[in-house]
C-alpha cells in the first residue's frame, strides 16, 4: 500500500510539473519584434537652377540655355531622422544619363547634383529624386534649349 501511494505521489508530481511546463513552453515561442523602420527624410524643396550660391539655388527655372554649361538640381530635406541616402537620377528624353548618390544627415540637410551640358544635350530632361527604398519622391522636369 505504501508502495502504491509512493508511486501515485510521484505520478502527481510529474503531472504537475508537466502541466506547469506547458505555458512556459508557449511562452518560449519567439515573438517577432517590430523592426524599427526609420521615417524617410522629408523633402521640403526641390528646384532646378542655374547655380548654387551659399548653399541656396540661384535662378530656379524650367528652361535652361545650353550656354550655361551646367545645370543644378537642388534638394532640401527637413527633418532628416537619421543618416540616409537619396538619389538624383538624371534622364534625357527617358534615357538615364546619371545617377547621383547624396548622403543626408540629421536633423536637416540640403544637397545638390549637377550636370555638365554639351551641345547634344538640348531637349527635354527630368530628374527623379528617389529615396533609399527606390521610392520616387519627386520628378523635376526641365528643358535645355539653344
Amino acid at each position: 500500500m505504501k508502495v502504491f501511494f509512493g508511486i501515485s505521489r510521484i505520478f502527481w508530481v510529474c503531472l504537475m510539473i508537466t502541466t506547469a511546463g506547458i505555458p512556459r513552453a508557449w511562452a518560449q515561442d519567439p515573438v517577432p519584434e517590430m523592426e524599427s523602420v526609420p521615417d524617410p527624410p522629408v523633402l521640403v524643396q526641390a528646384q532646378m537652377c542655374e547655380a548654387i550660391e551659399k548653399f541656396m539655388p540661384v535662378n530656379s527655372a524650367v528652361v535652361f540655355s545650353i550656354s550655361l554649361g551646367r545645370v543644378y538640381c537642388f534638394t532640401a530635406f527637413d527633418p532628416v531622422y537619421e543618416e540616409s541616402v537619396v538619389y538624383h537620377r538624371w534622364y534625357r528624353q527617358d534615357r538615364l544619363v546619371s545617377n547621383a548618390r547624396l548622403v543626408l544627415n540629421p536633423p536637416k540637410w540640403a544637397s545638390f547634383s549637377s550636370m555638365q551640358l554639351r551641345p547634344a544635350d538640348k531637349g527635354p530632361w527630368r530628374v527623379e529624386i528617389v529615396d533609399s527604398r527606390e521610392s520616387l519622391i519627386k520628378t523635376l522636369r526641365f528643358s535645355i534649349s539653344d
Binding site: N59, S60, A61, V62, V63, S65, K122, G123, P124, R126, R141, S143, S145, D146
Partner: peptide
C-alpha cells in the same frame, strides 16, 4: 512634358 526648342530671351527666365 513640353519639348521646348529655340532660344528664350537672355533677359527672361521661365520659372514655371
Amino acid at each position: 512634358q513640353v519639348f521646348w526648342v529655340g532660344r528664350l530671351s537672355p533677359e527672361l527666365i521661365m520659372t514655371r
